[in-house]
Design a protein around this nucleic acid. Sequence first.
DNA 1: AATAATATTTAGGCATACCTAAAAATTAGG
DNA 2: CCTAATTTTTAGGTATGCCTAAATATTATT
Lengths: 164, 164
Amino acid sequence: MRKKTIEDYVELIYILQHEKQKVHTSDIANTFDINPASVTEMFQKLSKEQYITYEKYNGVTLTPKGKKIAIQTKQKHDTLKHFLMILGVTEAIADEDACRIEHTITPLTMEKLTKFVKFVNQTDGHQRWLDHYKYFDKTGKIIRCTPETESQCPIHGRHHEHLS
Amino acid sequence: MRKKTIEDYVELIYILQHEKQKVHTSDIANTFDINPASVTEMFQKLSKEQYITYEKYNGVTLTPKGKKIAIQTKQKHDTLKHFLMILGVTEAIADEDACRIEHTITPLTMEKLTKFVKFVNQTDGHQRWLDHYKYFDKTGKIIRCTPETESQCPIHGRHHEHLS
DNA sequence: AATAATATTTAGGCATACCTAAAAATTAGG
DNA sequence: CCTAATTTTTAGGTATGCCTAAATATTATT
């Protein structure tokens, strides 16, 4: 599997903290499926760099610095995942890819993707184009419908009344 | 800068081969802005793994295996870049992000993104929604226009005739 | 409270992609 | 064609995130 970054660790600690107060070596080791010894090493590093408070044999908590990064990362993750699912990627894979992309993407690209997701959400139920995309995704067929021809559109024609 | 993968090297060799026949250590070192010594090392590795034919002091060429990977990678790169530019990312940054994402993305996600790009291309000039997205990107404002209200739409209203 | 089971840490290693400095090969100029 | 400049390679080193095995601390059982 992919090597975990500081962001991965901090994000996971953040998520686990909701259930556990103190997050332990084994929690991380299990979720990431890596050796506990590796987690201890990372705890030491994260502690040295002030992302977490670490007491030997007693779990960790996020510092404000760590929490900030965690929230930012989770935010990116959720947006990316949401975005991919709009395009028709399954949840499990969207999750996986979001996890990888969230660390490498530039702020500008993240911003545009965020806007795209907002755009789709805020026009929810009114994006005929998205139905057309999904139809294309399924069938490979492009069906154009202009306002004039929409009533004959095999995707929208029948439901025309409650769509507009 | 980010560490370069086998794919990065092979893709760049592929691009440079069009101009140069044999690609030399310094060509890669300059483009990636890394030390020539590091390129030599990678040449040795790539050669050992049969991606390139490597003769000391005499440049490299792609093997069929290497060329295949190169073409696949470049394909992914171009699609990703295109996709990001549809969303309004500038060319330079789209290029940068494409370069990072192309190595980590799963096939399913790549497939959906490819479909999305095709969908946009094949409906070129007929996606009123894309104009709406761009308007939202610029202004933050969502403007809904149904077939009935489209003629009053500030984006499409005036140009209604040659759009449909 | 002693011992057994479990969890965590330490110590020593590995692979990867990079680096610098120095050696060796190639190429260019007189 | 020989020396100087340039390019490439070798050798040795670094940081990172992982590993295993062994040591140590904690927790649970009786």
